[in-house]
Design a protein around this nucleic acid. Structure first.
Lengths: 252, 252
DNA sequence: TAATGAAATTGAGATATGTCAATTCGGAAG
DNA sequence: CTTCCGAATTGACATATCTCAATTTCATTA
């Protein structure tokens, strides 16, 4: 029951799974790190922890120790404002890393919750810093990851500050599509990992608006949606909608 | 003419100015770095370059090499979308660092332009990376800087996605106030370094809306504005407006 | 299979903000 | 000091999106 396909597969090499054999390693611990170095990384990474839908990986204000790499499933991050409103700040798919925004504090600056049954690798950040001074490519990699995160957040900001509901939603759909593609999944047919609610919160729209845009897109023949199943029927037209605008949400 | 007060002051110790004696060093190269280490930093930093109002520090898409610390004045960063619209992504005051979002690419992901006569210190990023592997506190510092940048960008995103024009503008005013205070300047009376135009672009509002909110705030007795001169007349009320909302834009 | 509650959709009406247009203000240059 | 041009303000109107409310659909549990 607590066995994922991933942890099952790893049984052959002991309880620890290998980043080296993880299909996502090129996304989360990429290229320029040598085998030898990956082994040292593996020493500090706690791999393949499973979280069920709705469970937290970490909570806002709790003590910050680790960042997490998503191995399977989907995670959302969010903050809660004083009035109790939840605000979604990001969606994370396999190969992506959560918690980089908290490394400058003693506490997590947002909460992370599983949108579906997921598995994550825990990476204690202090040990990353130690290791990074010894492995320059690792240091470089983390600078890159963080820089990318800044850029993506900037792009989201730009998307929210100038674009219409249609543009925002088209942008999210295309972003998801590209990210699925990168993971060797279909980029024209996939399941939305998050409820409309969260889409609205993330894009700064009311749920009703999200819903209306989805049906409008469907009537226009751009997509087909039934619940969370989505098929992109006319990618060029979708791209046309976001053309000239802040293109991508998280397109790495 | 190309002499700033700062570069004049530094003449005593040669052409190079000293980070050690810079009043901003605790902001841009802080605390935990020892004197010895600061000296090594100074070797790679080109200090006190002057840029006049309207001049660029770097342009979007040009080759990325350095990040920059603002020493005096004020800088804005912006991107230009396909349709030629300029979108402001940030305002930077003395002690703050520009370009961290570009360290994952070969090109700057935005442009940086001086809002007024400013002076900046150029920090070649490759050399920072080299040095950071040798000075763990420096590495740590840069991780912190970048993480903070992510967080601030997130907060801006949240501000734009849920808050009204009044809340956004109150937030910006308070943010500027706090940042001036940190630099030992008055936090209740200061000059806005940017035109209304840029405020609107940054906050995702039409110029007209910015203008209207300013006059509304003035009528409510929250502030006095004449052109760019601003006096905060009722700080508690301003704070009340942004209470319960994503508080701060860049409050380090 | 039925029952229950949450999520999603759809409609109607309200509103904050954008757009367009007309002044007014303010600082730079002569 | 006057002229001039861009910046800022103000007004009137248009509209995208929100809010509130009513169903409908879907998924989970009994």
């Amino acid at each position: 029951m607590s066995e994922t396909f991933a942890s099952t597969a790893s049984k052959a090499k002991g309880l620890q799974q290998s980043c080296m054999h993880c299909s996502l390693s090129n996304l989360c611990v990429p290229f320029a790190v040598s085998h030898d170095e990956i082994e040292r990384l593996e020493d500090i990474i706690k791999q393949g922890k499973v979280v069920n839908r709705g469970e937290h990986i970490f909570k806002e204000h709790s003590t910050f120790r680790s960042i997490f790499a998503v191995r399977s499933g989907a995670i959302k991050t969010y903050s809660v404002s004083e009035n109790g409103e939840e605000q979604v700040t990001g969606f994370y798919l396999p190969g992506e890393i959560i918690g980089l925004d908290s490394t400058n504090t003693d506490a997590y600056s947002c909460s992370a919750k599983a949108l579906e049954r997921s598995s994550v690798c825990e990476i204690p950040f202090e040990q990353v810093e130690d290791l990074a001074t010894k492995i320059p490519t690792l240091q470089h990699h983390f600078f890159q990851l963080m820089s990318k995160e800044i850029q993506q957040s900037r792009q989201l900001t730009m998307l929210l500050s100038k674009n219409t509901a249609e543009e925002r939603i088209a942008s999210l759909i295309v972003s998801l599509s590209e990210r699925f593609k990168k993971r060797k999944l279909s980029n024209i047919q996939f399941r939305l990992p998050m409820p409309r609610n969260d889409i609205g919160s993330y894009l700064g729209l009311a749920v009703e608006t999200v819903s209306r845009v989805f049906t409008r897109f469907q009537k226009m023949g751009l997509i087909s949606v039934q619940g969370r199943e989505l098929v992109i029927e006319n990618m060029p037209a979708l791209l046309e909608i976001i053309k000239g605008h802040t293109r991508c949400i998280k397109d790495e």
